[in-house]
Design a protein around this nucleic acid. Structure first.
Lengths: 197, 197, 197, 197
DNA sequence: AATGAATGAGGGTTCATTCAT
DNA sequence: TATGAATGAACCCTCATTCAT
């Protein structure tokens, strides 16, 4: 997968933009199985040749979308969590849970599509998100270890991150999920009681 | 006078069996993208025509596999949980967590393949598992409501089931997961502390 | 390049036949650069899918033609040369030269096309013809070594075979070649005088 | 007042030069099938637009290379053969054979590439070489007709030129050719004995 | 004179599906 | 019932060529 041209002129940046948008749109509206390079090019209003001038193959298209999307999500998460290191447990947990859930509202339909259809490409990247999250959580737990009812910080972080993630994913993927606010509270309780012993 | 399973031709059953096995094998060994009806027929040692005699299209093939697999898993879960209704909380939780994890060992490679590649077909069915699990958990929680620190049984069940599921899925999908036994204990603690308040 | 189905029914043998004929025809009429699998399929009156049921890729198509063609040529050569081992030099040489030239009349247009367009695939096979020819010639030279003005049989065979071949190829490829009969005589003289010293 | 070579811009000449060199390089290193105008432009360090400023299409690129290459070869041949008209037969033949073989050493890799891949473009031009050679040989033969055992100068020249050419081509194309010096001697003998009768 | 973005016909190939035997 | 030959839409991708800048 050799790197393709980097756009230099304004025109080509617009082209790349259009292609990425079209990719996302096709993904959301028609699903991964309907994602063909020709379709994307058509939806983008661009020739198939142009598409291949900037993306060496189909996979790179999806990868670019996934990267862009996870980047946005991780930014949101990092921002929400800044200066939380010394916050009291209750605040920290609730903020974190809320941040996770809100991070998934960036483009929930795209997220849904990526989750459902693209796992086989995105597992590593998605793993990436979780490992970022785990580092954050581990950091906090280590700092507050003496107030907490846990001993194995690594396993605890692992369990917490995945538990929160999962509830959240279910929330996104399921047709008929519970209300958001009670859910946040309940997940927070799950985490808090676990940590407080 | 309950319905007997239709005897049909023994030959037919063998053919269907061979096709399903071939499907699973291809899925596990080569992945969803390499799953083609022609390939399955060849691996099954059956003509493509015969395949289409029993399965109207490709999707139905995969669906049959998913159904068969989830059926087995849910059976395991139900069995493990029988007569647990009046068990003490600690026992119930630990048994449940262990049952969930063991249910995923029925055919972990197939499960992995289905998870990673086939989500777009299987989400409803996978949702099905969870809703079964939720019913079980809701039942237990309702029965023990007076000993527990929760009020909203539905949300609590929802949170718990997904939290446990998620840790488990991570455990299956991740390249470098923690040890199983400490994980079971830690997840059990997560649940117990939550329930006990 | 995995082997594809071997035709079993009469129908499919006809299909393979049609495809090979179409390949030859396109090669002769339009040249190698115009040889596309789609074009061959169309000319053969066969769907592109059928073509790929019997030939794993484009190259195998051409290879099949080359093989078929060289097989025919080598058969002709071998037949013409049978029982020549003990023939007197003059007879042997003239027979050989004539045989070489006649072997190229099997399907001269196809030969021309293959020569001109397909060299990059066929070099080994063409090498094969020459090495067959060299063995024949070496055998004869060794047997008659005491009548001949040469010492290094291998080099002599090499020179002779290529010299004869070349005149012949020129004869085929050039737009305005000399008459065949005088050419045969002259080439025979070239060889004879060389061998007699 | 002979035509000067148009000075134009020095820059233009450099561009053309770079393009031709790139063409040859791609041809030699990657083969004809990998020769694309875009690739040539990139290797030449020139924009595709510039390439089309000097060469109307892909074919003209290759044609230019072939022309340049054959020009060099024919120059070498002519030089080696100058003042040979009145040389004795042995000298003339050996000089000629050597000259032909050395002419192919100008850029043997390029020659090989052109031979194997580009024949369909170059046949006429390659024919051109041979016809030059034939004129040279015919001239010599006519001049020395009384010493020689031939009558039909044209056919003899034809046979000789192609025989020598062929041995040479085999020498270039074959993976495991004989040593050069014995080959030269043997080919010279082939020619000499033929001419002397 | 030079650039490089854009084009799109066309190429090789796959695979779900049908249907005559 | 079973076979497997046949189909062809669709896919990913390349590359000669054009043209606005």
């Amino acid at each position: 997968m050799e790197a393709r041209k980097q756009p230099k002129q304004a025109r080509s940046r617009a082209t790349v933009e259009a292609i990425l948008e079209a990719t996302a749109r096709v993904l959301v509206e028609d699903g991964y199985d309907a994602l063909s390079t020709n379709r994307v090019a058509k939806v983008a209003g661009v020739s198939i040749g142009s598409l291949y001038q900037y993306f060496p193959n189909k996979e790179s298209l999806v990868l670019a979308i996934v990267e862009q999307h996870t980047e946005e999500m991780m930014d949101m998460l990092r921002n929400a969590v800044t200066d939380l290191a010394h916050a009291p447990l209750d605040v920290a947990v609730r903020t974190y849970v809320r941040a996770i859930i809100e991070a998934h509202t960036v483009d929930p339909e795209l997220h849904r599509a990526l989750m459902m259809q693209v796992m086989h490409i995105g597992v590593e990247l998605i793993g990436g998100i979780n490992s970022t999250a785990r580092q954050i959580v581990e950091g906090y737990l280590t700092l507050h270890l003496d107030e907490l009812a846990i001993t194995d910080v690594k396993t605890a972080a692992y369990v917490l991150v995945h538990a929160v993630e999962a509830v959240n994913h279910a929330h996104i993927l399921e047709p008929d999920p519970p209300e958001t606010e009670p859910l946040i509270e309940e997940v927070s309780q799950l985490v808090l009681r676990y940590l407080k012993g």
